[in-house]
């Protein structure tokens, strides 16, 4: 059914801490590792060891540079996967009902047996969260590791998405946003968790925590009393002054 549910019982999703992410890409690898051999069709690679490798990934880490007007540039690593939007445009455009949002937990999934591979859902997604698999010709996307989080065959500590489980920096958090007391709701409230492209009206469930404002070395800054201090010598004196004068008189010394 490609009409969206009016509300979901739970709102499972991720909080991604841009302050903590070190850009190691471990989440990219563990995501591909888990999802290529579990839910649905495998995630194929094309020319993996050749000159022009490419492949299907459900999670990719970008890096951005921020240049503030009055501080040094800052590098931000930026993992990006499906945001499991409340108003998911990818779901409503699907002609077959293969794309759907689950009423019980809000996870957006693709039923690959019904996917005709038209690609329209990937067109509708502003975040690039859906990728058509070149080999399988069906749409692949983040399942929030639906086959891990409810999997009673796994030890309890493994019942979270592979990307969250593997993150060595603890930059990824998994939980239920419908519960105001959950870890993800608290983190979002404390740290000002934000939406990506809010103007698109997709109401993403996943939130991003902005990087904290950095301290910086202010020892080189000009003091406000500087104008009242003695001017600092710009001409060399003593031995260096003699050397400067002598070398200037030699041929080729004047420039």
């Amino acid at each position: 059914m490609t009409t969206l549910p009016t509300s979901t019982d739970r709102k499972l999703g991720l909080v991604i801490d841009l302050d903590t992410c070190v850009g190691c890409h471990a989440c990219v690898i563990s995501c591909k590792g888990w999802n290529t051999e579990n839910y649905g069709a495998p995630l194929s690679d094309q020319d993996p060891y050749g000159a022009a490798p490419s492949g299907t990934f459900l999670n990719r880490v970008h890096s951005y540079e921020i240049q503030p007007t009055d501080a040094p540039a800052q590098l931000v690593h930026f993992p990006k996967s499906c945001l499991h939007c409340e108003d998911a445009p990818c779901v409503t455009v699907c002609p077959t009902g293969a794309s759907y949002k689950r009423v019980e937990d809000g996870i957006v999934l693709v039923n690959e047996q019904d996917c005709i591979g038209c690609g329209l859902c990937a067109w509708a997604c502003p975040y690039g969260a859906r990728e058509m698999d070149t080999t399988e010709k069906v749409m692949k996307k983040c399942t929030l590791c639906v086959d891990r989080i409810y999997n009673e065959n796994l030890p309890e500590e493994d019942r979270e998405p592979a990307c969250v489980r593997t993150c060595p920096a603890g930059a990824r958090h998994f939980g239920d946003f419908s519960d105001p007391e959950s870890n993800v709701s608290k983190l979002t409230a404390e740290r000002g968790g934000m939406d990506l492209m809010p103007e698109m009206g997709t109401k993403p469930v996943n939130k991003y925590l902005p990087p904290r404002v950095k301290d910086r070395d202010r020892s080189e800054d000009v003091d406000i009393l500087a104008p009242f201090l003695d001017p600092i010598a710009t001409e060399p004196t003593g031995f260096l002054g003699w050397l400067d004068k002598t070398l200037t008189t030699l041929p080729g010394g004047k420039t």
Binding site: V28, S54, F57, R60, V61, H62, S63, E65, I66, Q67
Partner: peptide, 11 residues
């Protein structure tokens, strides 16, 4: 925070 520039693509 300031001007944002794409620094490094994912792959």
């Amino acid at each position: 925070r300031g001007d944002v520039r794409a620094f490094e693509p994912p792959h």
